[in-house]
Amino acid sequence: MTEPVIAHQKSMFRLVLIAGFAMSLAGCSHLPLLETDSPTEPTEKEPTAVESEPDAEPETRVQPRDEPGPDIAVGASARDNLYASLAAGGQALAPEDVGYFLDVHEARLRPVLAGSPIRMQRTDDRLLLTIPGSLSFETDSAKVVEGVEPMLGDLAAVLVEFDKTLVSVLGNTDDRGDAAYNQSLSERRAVAVALILKKMGVGRERLVGIGFGQERPAIEGDTETARTANRRIEILIEPVIAGS
């Protein structure tokens, strides 16, 4: 208990962006997620099963290895639907309990994440975890690097206990290569991580994978540092609030 504490940090610019994004999702709006319309507008997509994607790349191996059936919802509108059904399902949090819930959730995650490369950012109404891409995927591949799964084990256990949330796995790439391809790659990566969480017990009704391609750089710029930072998986944890 000796370590100093970051309680409620101010949102950084990036977080504001995410918040804006998430808010639009929560409102079931069909507004564009970002200021710059991406050619791969997720709202246009229907929830699709990953395996339905006709990708010939080795990423297909990301698909559930041993679990059959439709699994992870994909895309922003799928997320909206999931949220709506969770909020209506009687498993939602009372609005007055959200602060306590998120505080305790954060407290639980801190020791879990302490030794891992996963970073946690906290805003008033959500938690955002960032997994550096370089650590989790091989270049140009949706294959999860060995060692990522154990890293997610403890995290998944906390997600299982704190079950009144919607967990969105967000994939992001750098700006090299074709934007459409990047979008696809990021989505496959997001789904791959979501599948791992599902396998570890997080209910599929709470999980959604969304690919943003190169549209949400963490750092603007043309440098290798920026690219490395931009290739990343984020796990957005949003409490499901009754009546919202």
């Binding site: 370590e3 504490v5 970051i6 309680a7 959200v98 602060g99 505080d103 801190r110």
Partner: peptide
Amino acid sequence: PRADRIYESG
């Protein structure tokens, strides 16, 4: 609704 301290220890 709002914690004063959240420590790394949890």
